[in-house]
Simulated scan of single mutants.
Amino acid sequence: MSGFAKLVIYEDNHLLVVNKPAGVSTMGDENRQTLHTLAGAYLKQKYQKPHGVYVGIVSRLDAMTSGVIVLARTSKAAARLNVQFAQKSSSKHLEKTYLAIVQATNGVAANLSDKGTLSDYLYKDDAAHRMRATAGPQDGAKLAELGYRALHRSDSYQVMSVVPKTGRKHQIRVQFATRGWPILGDRKYGSPLQWSDGIALHSQRLTIEHPTRREPMTFECPPPESWNQYWRPASE
């Protein structure tokens, strides 16, 4: 329990907010422990519940992405949080902020301004087991939008603060990679380099409305130490 306890950012009767390590699937991996199974074991031991506990998955992070994620400890909390995440564009309080290190791909990277919005239509390429971007609507494609702001620049990479406006699968990874700026370590979408902690994509901040108190709550955690060679938050 002590190992998982170090990952817990906040806990009450309805919520469990965790700093997910890269390399851990949120759920659904039958061959390895997932965040769902680890959280269940932690709560079961901590509260001495031999017959199990409720852990609701209301949003996901890619296995190779680190950072803040919220789990529900009650079915009531899960239902209300599911509504928030499903209606993200109209939710009063819900907001996610990610950090990403993107690296220019030689010869094909488009210029990125210091801040802006990326808009594409994403669809699933089942044969290639990945998401694809297209500039306009097509069958099976859904609109994906995000806002970004550059926090640090070098000749070959940029550190970005990213706020998704939609919640499409692999959205941040695909939208930057499409413009020749794949996330560092994201070999699936074109990065030429390995990354020691999954990929250089981190869920830095999450704001939700508490499911019972109905008040906004914001949770934050810094990126892994492996980021230090590229950038450190100003607060450090």
Rank of each mutant, 00 (worst) to 15 (best):
N111G: 11
E145R: 15
S154D: 09
R187V: 14
S89D: 12
A109F: 03
S113K: 14
L71P: 05
A141T: 06
D114F: 10
A109P: 05
K165H: 15
A128C: 08
R73T: 11
A150H: 06
Q175C: 07
D126H: 10
G136R: 10
E145M: 14
K165F: 08
K76Q: 15
S66I: 04
A144H: 01
A78R: 13
V68D: 00
Q84D: 08
V68H: 05
L184V: 10
V68L: 04
H170M: 02
R130E: 01
G185R: 02
T97L: 09
L71A: 07
Y157V: 06
I101H: 00
I101M: 00
K142D: 05
R130F: 03
P182Q: 01
A110I: 09
M131T: 12
I101Y: 01
A128D: 09
G167S: 07
L112D: 02
W181F: 02
Q175L: 08
S154T: 14
S90C: 08
R132N: 09
R73P: 08
I69M: 09
P182N: 00
L122F: 01
Y98D: 07
Q158K: 13
R132V: 13
I69C: 05
D139N: 13
I69T: 08
G147Y: 11
G107S: 10
A79S: 09
R130G: 02
K165R: 15
L81K: 02
G140Y: 03
D125P: 04
Y157S: 07
S156Y: 13
V83K: 13
A133H: 02
I183H: 03
Q138M: 15
A150S: 11
L94N: 08
T166N: 01
T74Y: 05
R153S: 15
T166V: 02
V162P: 09
Y121D: 05
H93A: 14
Y121T: 00
H129C: 11
L146Q: 03
P137I: 14
S91N: 12
L122Q: 05
D155M: 14
R187T: 15
H129F: 11
K142E: 07
S154A: 10
V174S: 05
L184H: 13
T97V: 15
K76R: 14
T117K: 15
K124V: 11
N82I: 02
S66Y: 01
D186M: 03
H93N: 15
A72S: 12
M160E: 00
G107T: 08
I101Q: 01
R173G: 06
K165I: 02
Y189Q: 01
M131Q: 15
R179P: 06
A128S: 09
R168Y: 00
T97D: 06
A104E: 14
R149D: 11
Q158D: 09
A77V: 06
G167D: 06
D139F: 12
A141R: 07
G147K: 14
L71K: 04
Y189H: 00
A79N: 08
L112P: 00
R153C: 14
S156W: 12
L143W: 01
G136K: 10
L94E: 09
R130S: 04
A150I: 11
G185W: 04
